[in-house]
Design a protein around this nucleic acid. Structure first.
Lengths: 152, 152
DNA sequence: TCCATATTTGTAATCATTTCAAGCTTGTAA
DNA sequence: TTACAAGCTTGAAATGATTACAAATATGGA
């Protein structure tokens, strides 16, 4: 039986990244938190339990490394911080301006893959589709207390 | 004959924003720089010529005010700063990762207007389509010196 | 075992943005 | 006019995310 950790290790090796303990744990955390779209701080705080010597700089270095190797996707929908997404399948994101939640949106823009990654002559490497508004739950609970941080 | 400044003034008044000198000049600058997608700093530096007492905070305050009133659109494609776009018609943006240029992309995503602004039950107020890659010019000039700042 | 190289760490710096309090304008009512 | 409140503008200081840097540590051969 192949453990999840072994899969994570293989993923790193396939990208030519040496599977150190910190890197394994960081990628494992992201793979277990597909719906959170975690921040650097969230990764750091959580892993501090497993790795008390962990440095915030290591988390930054590691995530930047993963980004370069396209092992994870950086979501900058909030405008204030990078959120990390282990799911690199093509999809979009929705930000609720009331509760701050980021929700995956499974749309395929017509222009995404059809035109061999060229638009008006420009070579496209990344597509980010960001939708912002009020989520289903917050729309329902108008006037009630929101369940997350507010954006203003 | 209606001057450009009068048009700018009317735009502010229509949104219930008192047309002070600073606000007029900031909005005028944005209207004259549709292709730049200027940063706060660019607005500030340029207007310092006309308004030597201008404060950076005023530029921030004013642009945030314009954003709230939907007089301008905030583009966060670079991930490090807000770029301001006077053109609030629905369109997307392309960032060249080599020269840093931001180019307007006139696409209409099928989901943009059709479904009355609702996706999966979430109310959509803003749509940001960010494409990143290498622009036409930089693709041509491979190996040649790029004409702007580099992104790494 | 020893050394070169890569990795991790903590601190300090940077950069965009916000906070805050004080000073300035402006419109209006006495 | 004069005086005052409300709204604007200003500059300095604070904040928060991220990067730079250099020292300490781990790793994998010769």
């Amino acid at each position: 039986m192949i453990t999840n950790m072994e899969k994570i290790k293989t993923l790193l090796e396939e990208k030519g990244i040496k599977p150190t303990f910190q890197r394994l744990k960081i990628l494992e955390y992201l793979s277990n938190n597909l719906n959170n779209h975690p921040t650097v701080e969230m990764v750091y705080e959580k892993l501090l339990n497993d790795i008390p010597t962990l440095s915030l700089t290591t988390v930054y270095n590691t995530l930047n490394n993963f980004l370069e190797k396209r092992l994870v996707f950086g979501v900058t929908i909030t405008g204030t911080e990078v959120r990390y997404d282990f799911n690199t399948d093509y999809h979009h994101h929705f930000l609720c301006k009331k509760c701050g939640q980021i929700i995956d949106i499974d749309l395929k823009c017509a222009y995404a893959e059809g035109e061999k990654g060229i638009i008006s002559g420009h070579r496209i490497d990344e597509i980010h589709g960001y939708f912002k508004g009020i989520c289903k739950d917050c729309s329902k609970n108008v006037g009630k207390k929101s369940r997350g941080r507010s954006s203003s």
